[in-house]
């Protein structure tokens, strides 16, 4: 066979619009995931009580079911249960936000717990108000410690958006398969999007590696 760039040139704008949607959905889901994940994380940090148990339940639930099942469930079952329709895009974002929230909550919790107890005790003993303990003592080192995990998760999230093609959202993988069906240039389109995914995700992975190295180096002294 020969690699037919002709079809790519003709349809590259569709691939690019898919890329735009992939990026958009990733970022929006990440945004909602961060907010909801923070709430879940704070709930789980309570360590006892009803709020703690509810948050644990939510986190465990969304971490254990496969993303595809979650996506289909939100898309086809949720409207039946709530008896109103939501668009494919909205249900896709909702599903991925829940997925992100559950994972990010655990990442945030690990970040907070990575700050030594003594730091908090010292600030308590000085009478520093709680707000400043969180913002000045816990948050900066916690963020530094969890940044690699967050970026790493972002790469997972970007890859997970490709599952949304199953519910007909016109993200990058969807466009490639549709164009493949239409033109039979499967190899060209699928290779092209593979390269595009790589170009987005590889730099992120590299940045994780750099952050890890820097973190280890500074922990050493």
């Amino acid at each position: 066979m020969r690699f037919d760039t002709h079809q790519l040139v003709l349809n590259y704008h569709l691939i690019l619009s898919g890329l735009k949607i992939t990026c958009l959905i990733s970022l929006i889901s990440l945004g909602f995931g961060v907010v909801l994940g923070l709430v879940l994380c704070l709930g789980k940090l309570r360590d006892k009580g009803i709020i703690y148990r509810v948050c644990c339940g939510i986190i465990d639930f969304f971490r254990t079911i496969p993303e595809v099942v979650l996506i289909f469930w939100v898309y086809s079952c949720l409207p039946l249960l709530l008896s109103f329709r939501i668009s494919a895009e909205a249900s896709g974002v909702l599903a991925l936000s829940l997925f992100a929230a559950a994972y990010l909550a655990e990442i945030f919790r690990a970040g907070v717990l990575s700050v030594p107890r003594g730091q908090v005790e010292a600030s308590l003993s000085l009478g520093i108000p709680e707000f400043y303990i969180w913002s000045r003592i816990i948050f900066p080192p916690a963020l530094r410690n969890m940044m690699p995990a967050i970026v790493n998760f972002l790469t997972e999230l970007i890859k997970a958006t490709s599952l949304l093609s199953a519910i007909g959202i016109a993200e990058m993988s969807y466009q490639a398969t549709i164009l493949g069906n239409k033109t039979f240039a499967y190899v060209e389109f699928l290779s092209a999007i593979a390269v595009l995914y790589f170009l987005i995700i590889f730099p992120l992975s590299l940045s994780v590696r750099t952050m890890e190295k820097r973190r280890l180096a500074s922990a050493g002294n």
Binding site: P116, G118, Q119, E121, A122, S123, S125, R136, I137, P140, P141, R144
Partner: peptide, 9 residues
């Protein structure tokens, strides 16, 4: 404190 607990950052 025994272990100083200075704010390392």
């Amino acid at each position: 404190f025994q272990s100083f607990n200075l704010f390392m950052h």
